[in-house]
Nucleic acid binder design. Structure first.
Ligand SMILES: [Mn+2]
Ligand SMILES: [Mn+2]
Ligand SMILES: [Zn+2]
Ligand SMILES: [Zn+2]
Lengths: 146, 146
DNA sequence: AGTTTGTTGATAATAACTATTAATTAAAAA
DNA sequence: TTTTTAATTAATAGTTATTATCAACAAACT
């Protein structure tokens, strides 16, 4: 999570131009916990940047990922989601409403140690995805039954 | 992993017809550890079933998944992979050659317990993916350097 | 301000997967 | 075994997320 000044500096340093679209897309990602996909970002920014196209979203996302400002989340849907928190952390998706939440302060080290013992791969990263029913959907379901 | 007889019985029981294509696709998945995607399966079966189309592969895979004979693996590529081992187990993908290997005998329970404490979701499953460089690619890389 | 060069946004292309449908075939009924 | 019925195959068309192309444009450097 960087402020606009730092993002500006980083983009320039990496040889990319600083445009309002790029700042807006990064800013939108910093100000949500919803892990939006490209279309959700597009819809969110539409009122403020009515001429911006989806192609710009995709290209900006690729640049932000390349310079380490965001990470890509693949929770097994038909589209990818994006996250301005770049530290690796597990995610959980509601199998009813498809919302995606963070699981923070998860200690990967026991799992990594476990895997390092079992494989001769040179490990470089991991992604953990959990599935379940979110509190809101649990509430709705118990209402329907009664 | 079921033999042809059991697969036949299960398909019939679930109301699906037993066809050579279906048995061949399941059999191909049982006899590989490569976690093939649809195209890899198609190419493998092409010599034996030259008229079989990709659509048949996809539909069969969907049926096999529905009746619990296979699972779908999403290791963050642009296509899905399939696995005749239905017990949940982590996978590791080589970031150089993209091969996908199993990690067996991994104990999920500490991680699940950890997550259950941190979230108010009603947990139902999980997928763990690891990334790294496989032994073969490590060997190739050390050769190149010397 | 003028020049250079990367960027935007409209559009076309790609690729994995899904839907449609006529011909075929498995399996139940006779 | 033959007939009947309904599911399946395979060819083909459709869908959708993502990527490529390119002319107009704007950021950065002088
Ligand atoms: Mn997150
Ligand atoms: Mn596996
Ligand atoms: Zn939910
Ligand atoms: Zn490799």
């Amino acid at each position: 999570m960087m402020d606009a000044k730092k993002v500006t500096a980083l983009l320039r340093k990496k040889g990319f131009k600083v445009t309002p679209q790029r700042l807006a897309i990064y800013n939108a990602l910093c100000n949500t916990k919803a892990h939006p996909n490209a279309e959700m970002l597009f819809n969110k920014l539409q009122p403020y940047y009515p001429t911006m196209s989806l192609a710009t979203i995709y290209k900006t996302i690729d640049i932000l990922r390349e310079i380490g400002l965001i990470q890509v989340i693949n929770v097994g849907e038909d589209s990818l989601r994006y996250d301005a928190t770049v530290e690796l952390h597990p995610h959980i998706r509601c199998t009813v409403c498809n919302r995606v939440d963070d699981i923070m302060d998860f200690d990967f080290s026991p799992a990594i140690k476990n895997v390092a013992e079992k494989t001769s791969y040179d490990l470089s990263g991991q992604q953990f995805y959990f599935y379940g029913v979110c509190p809101e959907c649990q509430a709705k379901m118990s209402k329907k039954i009664s």
